[in-house]
Design a protein around this nucleic acid. Sequence first.
DNA 1: GTCTGTTAGTGATAAATATCAATTAATAGG
DNA 2: CCTATTAATTGATATTTATCACTAACAGAC
Lengths: 231, 231
Amino acid sequence: MSGGNLIDSCENCTRQWKNFQHLTKTELKLINENRYEATFKPGEIMLKQGSPTSNALFMANGMAKTYIEGINGKNFIMSIALPGRLIMGPGAYVNSRHTFSVSAITTVQACFISFDIFKQLVRVNGAFAESLIEDISAKSLRSHIRMVNLLQKRMSGRLAEVLLYFSDEVFHNDEYEMILSRQELGEMTSMAKECAVRILKELEDSGVIYSDSSKIKILDRKKLIQISEKG
Amino acid sequence: MSGGNLIDSCENCTRQWKNFQHLTKTELKLINENRYEATFKPGEIMLKQGSPTSNALFMANGMAKTYIEGINGKNFIMSIALPGRLIMGPGAYVNSRHTFSVSAITTVQACFISFDIFKQLVRVNGAFAESLIEDISAKSLRSHIRMVNLLQKRMSGRLAEVLLYFSDEVFHNDEYEMILSRQELGEMTSMAKECAVRILKELEDSGVIYSDSSKIKILDRKKLIQISEKG
DNA sequence: GTCTGTTAGTGATAAATATCAATTAATAGG
DNA sequence: CCTATTAATTGATATTTATCACTAACAGAC
């Protein structure tokens, strides 16, 4: 993590959070003047669960994992944070503690903005507030869907779902680098790493995917969707 | 479900959603003039997953279960809706479809308020908007905690947690009527009904609770918490 | 290059959980 | 009060998933 601003301004930022479009020029300038840029190396923790929610975090470049540190050191990876996204857990408006941790997977460039300023803008700008509610709601909706997936499907269905998530939401491609280790893949699908390995192999053996340790290629999308839906 | 307003007005309603305190008199009057009261009998569906989110729902009296209709007709009960609470899923601000269903457990008195009006107030009243974000955030936080509980604990831990939920959040008493059937208890803890029965029996045999088919009494709270935390 | 620690992969086994098949309460109508 | 259903319980068994104990592969430090 190093200081110094590489990004010129929020106004010209190509990775700007899309909800900032609801701010006036003055308001956006206020954000810009109060942001702190940081660059994280792979593996570095960007936000720590339990720490005070003093800042909202915006992803400018790179990828990170958001995860809950659960019972007995067992993690649960919720999602992959991508450029242009706001990272703000529910704790910001409840107990002022981060509900989850975030750690960089690749090199990550991110901006911190004080919650005092952020919340103030939410209070005075109705359209901005509404767009924040939309953002929070979308995350909540995903988490509901995710919950049912994880609770009601067997391992192969859960893993298939995550493989599709990477293809559809993260890389927008049927072929991609699996940026998570097998251990992490297990933490995202709520299974032991050994099981993740085995099911990946099963999917490869049945010709649904090609999988070299770090590369994934979806060969039979229809079947993968079927496995994901059937459970 | 029958029409006719039994509640005099929002202003004097003892079950008023606490966030309405941020509304002006005029705004609250607007809500009051546009609300529709309904009474549901036990078992009746109040909101159906997938249907359009035309209204926000406020619980005035009684208890309901909110549940997601998942895979193969398997339900997942998220929580018990109580008097004074707003029922509004994330769909309202995303795809205008209810994300979950709600059905009455006891006789329920509830008010429907059009989302058009509700959203308008969110837009113009910053403090109200903020309080809504707080409400949504609190629900989201619970759901995160719930997710870890359900994903990382074994059956006895999950059931113990739900028994404590009823005691702490619903009845505020160590002794209460279990308003859910064994089947539903299973749907809330993500286990088969037979397992719910067995674990309830185990807890009784080990003196942690007393359980007559419909009555639950927590005898050893410390131990129950321990079981819930250990997983 | 060699050493060393970490991740991936494999098979055997144990533990947890679901399903199935019966019975036995419990309850709502008539 | 009796009967038809539905819910609760129980035991046996099948599935699913986790754990354990290794071996192989790999990457970084020196």
